[in-house]
Amino acid sequence: MTDLAPVSPFDASPSAVGRIARRAPIDWTGIAFLTGLAVVILLPLVVTAVWAFAEVWRFPAIVPQRMGLGYWQETLSRTDVWQALWLSLSITTTVTVISAAICFPAAYAFARLDFPGRNMLFLAFLSVQAFPKFGLIIATATIFLTLNLIGTFWGVVLIQLVGTLLYMIWIPVSAFQGVDRRLEEAARDVGASPMRVFWSITLPQAAPTLFAAILITFVNTFYETDAAWLIGLPNVRTMPMVMIAFINNALEVQYGAVLFVFLWVPSFLLMLAARRVMGADAFAKGLGG
């Protein structure tokens, strides 16, 4: 970014600047980290992506014997894949919409309103974090057994919804708290009603973060496996369940790889957008850093 900074009028000629700049020390430590991380982080993903386009790749060849889109056609014409995709999308959409509808108002209340038991209730939400997640799911599943919710659409929606509560409340709480009170007060000052202030000032100011929270919830719910496995199977098979089946049953290796590329690229772009809005700090702060 500094490249764009204006050079002061006292600066020497461009050649002199170039001469100085070239002496900038090379960040060898950084390059070492970069190389290590590239191998460890990117290599697995690249290998998987190559598998998606490999029609024949027999051990021990370094590169596939034949590349092509054959498996794409085969994978994407499987009915179980499309069924799972639609099921996953409808579960995820339902969860996200309900979660936003009940959590955002609650987040606003926690951030801005004063009501009895506010701190205690907020702590109750945080305390969920004190339990190992899969243990909680087992405990909830026991309740679902008596309610006949195991293996049903709404059972999966409910358990996923609970999983989203914490994030859909704490991210928006900090978003609403982040809105400068003085902006709201200035609007009240020029004659806006409290409702008007909320719709015209508070909500637009918090909107990017709320949007990020929705994106994160959507993507995380889509790929959730623990709860979907325990509550959903065998009747409700979400997309990740189909992928796990592909992995476990050792069907054609490429099926998994194709789904990997097909599903992951859009979700990656969504998450990237979310993080751009939120910044790494917000993530860490919410986690207790």
Binding site: D3, A12, I20, R23
Partner: peptide, 13 residues
């Protein structure tokens, strides 16, 4: 003494 940060010259001559 001269010092440049990237292309920005912080100190010169």
């Amino acid at each position: 003494i001269a010092k440049a940060f990237g292309k920005v010259t912080a100190l010169d001559a």
